[in-house]
C-alpha cells in the first residue's frame, strides 16, 4: 500500500500507463459506438430512441462507481494518512459529478419520448439528482478549505457519510416502485436484451471505464504538479524574503 504513496513513483508509473489506457479508450469507443449506433438492431417498441441507453447506462454506472472510488480512496486516505489516496479522491469528484450530470441529461432526453416529459420524480432520477448534490458538496469542501491536509481529512469524513446515500440509491428501485424500468441487465434469469445490444452496452461500459481511468490518472498528475508548483513558489518566495 505505502509503496504507491510516493507521488514521484506514481508519476513514473502513470506516464508509462497513460498512452496505453488512452489508446484502449479510443479503440473501445470505436468498437462500442459502431456496435451501438450501427450493428445493434432497432428496438421494436422504442425504435432508435433506445440508443440513448448506450450513453445513459454507462454514465449512470460511472456516476455510482465514481462515488465508490471516492469513498474507498477517502477511507484509505483517512486511515493510513495516504497522500496519494487523498489526491485520488479529490481528482475523482469532478469526473463523477460530470458523469452524474451526463446521466441526468441523457435520462431526461430519453424521458421526453418515453414518458412525454423531461422530468419525473421517479426514484432513480431523484436519487441521481441527490447524488449530484452530494458530489457538489464534496467538491465545495475541497474548495472552501485552504489547508490541504485539513481539507483531505474533512472531505474524507464527508465522503464516508455520503456513501450511505449511494447505498440508498442502490435500493431505491425496490423502495419506491415507480415508472422507471426495473433493472434488465443483471437479474436472476439472465439478461433479457438482444445479444448485439448487450455486446454494445458492455463495450460502452468498458469504454467509459477506461476513459474514467485515463482521465483520473491525468487529473492526479495535474494535482501533483500543481502542488509541486506551489511548493516551488513558496521556496522561491522564502529565498527572496
Amino acid at each position: 500500500m505505502h509503496k504507491f504513496a510516493n507521488p514521484a513513483r506514481f508519476m513514473r508509473l502513470s506516464n508509462i500507463l497513460l498512452p496505453w489506457t488512452t489508446g484502449l479508450t479510443i479503440v473501445l469507443f470505436g468498437f462500442g459506438l459502431y456496435y451501438s449506433l450501427i450493428l445493434a438492431p432497432q428496438d421494436y417498441q422504442m425504435g432508435n430512441t433506445y440508443r440513448i441507453m448506450f450513453i445513459h447506462v454507462p454514465a449512470s454506472y460511472m456516476a455510482l462507481f465514481g462515488y465508490g472510488v471516492i469513498a474507498v480512496a477517502s477511507a484509505v486516505g483517512f486511515i493510513w494518512n495516504h497522500p496519494l489516496a487523498n489526491q485520488a479522491a479529490r481528482a475523482t469528484a469532478p469526473l463523477g459529478a460530470t458523469f452524474t450530470a451526463l446521466a441526468l441529461i441523457t435520462g431526461s432526453l430519453w424521458g421526453k419520448p418515453m414518458w412525454g416529459t423531461y422530468w419525473i420524480w421517479d426514484a432513480r432520477l431523484t436519487s441521481m439528482l441527490i447524488l449530484f448534490f452530494i458530489y457538489l458538496g464534496y467538491i465545495a469542501v475541497w474548495q472552501t478549505i485552504e489547508d490541504q491536509a485539513k481539507a483531505a481529512k474533512i472531505a474524507a469524513i464527508v465522503a464516508m457519510i455520503g456513501i450511505i446515500n449511494v447505498v440508498i440509491i442502490k435500493f431505491s428501485v425496490d423502495w419506491w416502485n415507480t415508472l422507471h424500468q426495473p433493472a434488465t441487465l443483471i437479474r436472476a434469469g439472465g439478461p433479457t436484451i438482444h445479444g448485439d445490444m448487450l455486446a454494445a452496452l458492455l463495450l460502452m461500459i468498458a469504454a467509459f471505464n477506461m476513459f474514467f481511468v485515463t482521465l483520473l490518472m491525468w487529473r492526479i498528475q495535474s494535482l501533483i504538479l500543481k502542488r509541486r508548483i506551489r511548493t516551488l513558489r513558496l521556496q522561491l518566495g522564502g529565498g527572496r524574503g
Binding site: 441527490i130 448534490f133 465545495a140
Partner: peptide, 18 residues
Amino acid sequence: TLRRGGVLLSLLILPLYI
C-alpha cells in the same frame, strides 16, 4: 473551523435530510 462554513453546511447536510 471554516470561515465560510455556513453555506457549505447547508449544501452538505440538506441532501442527508431527505
